[in-house]
Amino acid sequence: MGSISEFFQHLMNGLTLGGIYALIALGYTMVYGILKFINFAHGDILMVGSYIGLFTFNAIRGQQMGIWTIVAFFIAMIAGMLFSAVLGVLIERIAYKPLRRATRLAPLLSAIGVSFILSNTAAWAWGTKSRKLDYPFDNTPFTIGGVAITPHQILILVVVIIMMVSLKLFVDRSRIGKAMRATSLDQDTAKLMGIKADQIIAITFAIGSALAATAGFLIALEIKVYPSMGMMTGLKAFVAAVVGGIGNISGAMLGGILLGLLETFGVALLGIPYGMRDTIAFVALIIILLIKPEGLLGKVEKEKV
């Protein structure tokens, strides 16, 4: 580790990465909170959303880079979010809902199946080659005290913060958010209180999937778009959700940021070989499961009778 500026450079890189993990982890944690089930197709919904965003952006952005390309970028992001939201709800209806009363393993296996179907269909339909998402604006970095910051990183952080704050407000303050929390606490009682649980579950899937699409579209700027892009990112976001305390929205945010920083500094500061980088997340998962299985912010749940 050389200088202070190198430290802050790694910090910036880690925060951007962590913000993305957090955004994806939210989807896992929301679904788990309500259905007690891990949606393993979440990463692939992210991938489909990124493709849709990419296609939309390419179709409408025109040639010249300017204000319009920035507008087009956000339109494309919203298109990807909407498509993913609909896809997430459809998947829930077709592959998970019929299994809601089956053994807990059944929807999990169904989710893994959906994951393969989505990624293989994407590979078949769109090819396996990475596609470049063109920049919506000039990405020349500016330097503050030796730390290079790109407009993309700022874009990513700003969008991530907006999404997280509005989700937190939505869940804590709105009526639907209240219904979500009630459904999560006890589905049957919630139904007795007049909450349409199926509708709430659908909304949860829609929001989670839209957030995944946002994350996918944002990382597409950095890592391009390809059919297996959701795989590792999705898995790590899942780890982030567990580390933070699965089912807990603030926990997912904290877990995501922590994981991003851990991966960056683990390699840069602790001298973990780069080839082992992907294992950091999973070692963290095992440690947290051994020491604090409910996660950093998770509450110990009493067994319901």
Partner: peptide, 12 residues
């Protein structure tokens, strides 16, 4: 796809 950690070390 992400080489930023290595590049940051090289830069330093």
């Amino acid at each position: 796809k992400d080489f930023k950690t290595q590049l940051t070390k090289i830069k330093a």
